[in-house]
């Protein structure tokens, strides 16, 4: 230590110290910081628990190595975002085969979901779960979001996200009650029939704008009851039910003899 103390005033000392400090910080960071594949802090235990969950709930279809089969997609490289989307919306684990996996009450709690996500993310690099800031509707521009939504989303999900039909019994679900995080993840990962919209296609800012546009729809319509926001067909149905209904009723009253 004496030797060290003696060289404390060496003119290179600050440089060495700085290098040491950088090394230590870097090492600690490397140990503690999350890998880019999962935004949450995923410990080794998490990954292990996730693996157990995977073997118990998912391996039957996706295989013990998560590599899928001809009819079941491989999960290597799908990332934590895909797992969080599928599991937190209850689509996975699937209960029955049908035209598509449908939304249902989630079968895993938030912790289990994140453990499973950590495990799948550890299998291969893929999109991470977005942070709260990335999906904060108040930071987005609803007008820009509207134009992105119109071109990329409205043809399947309807102009304001009320949902729509695809071929052979598949459908694009309604988006109005979907968590902003799940909307973001869906764009990023392209679940099931939905194509992928990577960050070169729709940038992270534009994705947030889309979320802001959808958030605007929570206020309903300026015109009154939305009638499902389904467009002219529901308007036509209601003009017969309410309009013609009331007026034919009035006509019968007018034509009837007074008692």
């Amino acid at each position: 230590m004496k030797a060290l103390a003696a060289r404390r005033h060496h003119r290179l000392a600050p440089v060495v110290l700085l290098l040491l400090a950088l090394l230590v910080t870097g090492g600690v960071y490397a140990l503690l910081a999350p890998s880019p594949a999962s935004a949450d802090t995923a410990s080794v235990q998490d990954i292990e628990t996730g693996e157990k969950l995977f073997q118990a709930n998912c391996a039957t279809c996706h295989g013990p190595d998560a590599e899928g089969s001809d009819t079941v997609p491989s999960l290597v490289g799908v990332g934590a975002a895909a797992v969080d989307f599928q599991v937190s919306t209850g689509r996975m684990p699937m209960q029955a085969s049908g035209p598509q996996a449908i939304e249902k009450p989630a079968q895993m709690d938030a912790e289990q979901t994140s453990q499973l996500a950590a495990y799948v993310a550890s299998l291969g690099a893929g999109p991470a779960i977005p942070t709260d800031e990335m999906v904060d509707a108040s930071k987005g521009d609803p007008a820009l979001g509207a134009s992105v939504f119109r071109t990329n989303c409205a043809m399947c999900h309807n102009a304001i996200g009320a949902g729509g039909a695809l071929s052979e019994g598949k459908f694009a679900p309604a988006l109005l009650d979907v968590e902003p995080r799940n909307i973001y993840q869906a764009m990023l990962t392209g679940p099931q029939s939905m194509p992928v919209f990577n960050d070169a296609n729709i940038t992270p800012e534009e994705k947030r704008d889309v979320i802001a546009y959808l958030a605007e729809q929570h206020d309903g319509s300026a015109g009154g009851l939305t009638l499902g926001s389904l467009g002219p067909v529901s308007e036509g149905l209601w003009v017969w039910v309410v309009g013609m209904g009331l007026l034919v009723g009035a006509a019968v009253w007018i034509g009837a003899k007074s008692s």
């Binding site: 071109t151 990329n152 392209g190 194509p195 992928v196 919209f197 990577n198 070169a200 296609n201």
Partner: peptide, 12 residues
């Protein structure tokens, strides 16, 4: 870029 168009993407 061609590299931007990853698998499963659709670009308008």
């Amino acid at each position: 870029r061609a590299a931007d168009v990853t698998m499963g993407n659709v670009f308008h």
